[in-house]
């Protein structure tokens, strides 16, 4: 299979607080080889400039619900990478 025909999954990544500062962006559009999991999104982000400041397994959400690294992501999903929570 040539690279051009590898199925891809496009996701919108949201970054917040210290993570947004580390990567210099609050939102990114990524295209990953399918199938892709939340962990693949994180691995990609950690390879970007400033991405080494993300922990290997940060708290994540998929479509407004907490997600685990093993969760599959689907085309059009919104994946949020959440720094340590500090509400309350």
């Amino acid at each position: 299979m040539s690279a051009a025909t590898v199925p891809a999954v496009a996701v919108r990544v949201l970054l917040f607080a210290s993570y947004a500062e580390s990567l210099g962006a609050e939102a990114l559009d990524l295209s990953l080889p399918s199938p892709a999991r939340v962990a693949d999104v994180i691995a990609h982000l950690r390879g970007l400039p400033g991405g080494h400041q993300l922990p290997p397994k940060p708290l994540c959400a998929r479509n407004l619900t907490h997600a685990s690294p093993d969760d599959l992501v689907a085309q059009g999903d919104e994946v949020a990478v959440l720094p340590p929570l500090a509400g309350g």
């Binding site: 607080a17 340590p84 509400g87």
Partner: peptide, 21 residues
């Protein structure tokens, strides 16, 4: 405190600012 995605940035008397982690 455990689940809601809210973050806090504190400003200190010495002028520095930090995300609470």
């Amino acid at each position: 405190k455990r689940r809601v995605p809210i973050w806090k940035r504190e400003q200190y008397a010495d002028g520095t600012i930090a995300w609470v982690d």
